[in-house]
Design a binder for these strands. Structure first.
Lengths: 179, 179
DNA sequence: ATTGATACAGAATTTAATACGGCCATTATG
DNA sequence: CATAATGGCCGTATTAAATTCTGTATCAAT
């Protein structure tokens, strides 16, 4: 399958919201984006060109950000996964922190509600490499402390799922919210 | 681009380790797996069939786990990202916890070193849905407490990078490890 | 030195992506 | 209310890419 490169949506042209068919398409393509439009059409009940048209729209609108190869971390020698909380004086996207983000080992950087703290996901070859990354983080100006959570084993890891939005059963002890 | 479905590697047939060319290929395909083999070959200095052969091998060996559409969480109405630590009595992949993993909102479940605790990444439509998920988690047998980290903003989020393994400069105050 | 295996390039073939035209349904408009 | 305009789809035709095939060079092991 394929066509023009997925681009980041610079502008928001046709932001029609995704319908049930689009979700089905997304569900299929998250599992496997290497199938043909004929196969995709079959699975969601469309002709190949119609499926193609939908996918093009999903790309244009930015619903599909990218079509990417998912790499096994072990294959590229990064078997060690860790999450790091760093407490910072104030928030921010400091230049020092952004320098850290250029390391290929760093996969995610989020700022977190409550404390002034950042949550970072890293994948390294071994504990030695993790140590280097951590000491670099600790030396970053504004960082007051770090806590690391080294992952022993991963039970589930998957990309964003389109999933049909279903309701959770309200816990009995919980009142319906006012708004 | 593409061919037969990426399969999970049941057996380990040709586990030759990835060389520099393979890393280049992975680097390109992580960015954009929709390019043609001609284009891929150009970028890494191979003929189209040779590039194709490499990619097939990377799939067979499991280095490329999947080729997937990356979805914008906002497009599927999941703008809220949170990490949840749950403390558990003992470890484990209890049936109850595994039931949680079937919710499409749950993206990752890891067990963590040190405490007996699990780290869970979830993405929901709103705080209401998060609340439902959390109360469900708290009601899971064996769970003694939960802590949630709601993400305010994400500065970096990307897939596993093949990256050329480079050395960190050893911190000056740190001795070389003995092994 | 010879054999075998591996990786590659180039050409040939098959398959899939893409472009085009027409149809139907829904929605906007006079 | 009638009618135009739009959007989404299908079927077909064309073009481009994936895939197969064959020969060759390189390297390793016998």
């Amino acid at each position: 399958m394929d066509e023009e490169t997925d681009g980041v949506p610079q502008n928001r042209p046709a932001a029609r919201d995704v319908d049930a068919t689009d979700r089905k398409i997304l569900g299929v393509l998250v599992d496997d984006a290497t199938i043909s439009y004929a196969e995709l059409g079959d699975r969601v009940g469309l002709s190949p060109p119609a499926a193609h048209e939908r996918v093009k729209r999903l790309r244009r609108s930015g619903a599909i950000r990218n079509t990417a190869a998912i790499i096994d971390p072990k294959a590229v020698r990064k078997p060690l996964l860790a999450f790091v909380h760093i407490d910072t004086k104030g928030w921010g996207k400091t230049p020092e922190l952004m320098a850290i983000s250029e390391r290929p080992e760093v996969e995610e950087i989020h700022s977190v509600a409550g404390d002034t703290c950042m949550l970072i996901k890293v994948r390294t070859e071994d504990t030695r490499a993790l140590e280097g990354l951590l000491s670099r983080l600790y030396e970053t100006p504004g960082v007051t402390s770090t806590r690391s959570y080294v992952v022993l084993s991963t039970y589930l890891e998957r990309p964003v799922q389109p999933g049909i939005t279903t309701e959770w059963p309200s816990p009995r002890h919980m009142a319906k919210p006012l708004y």
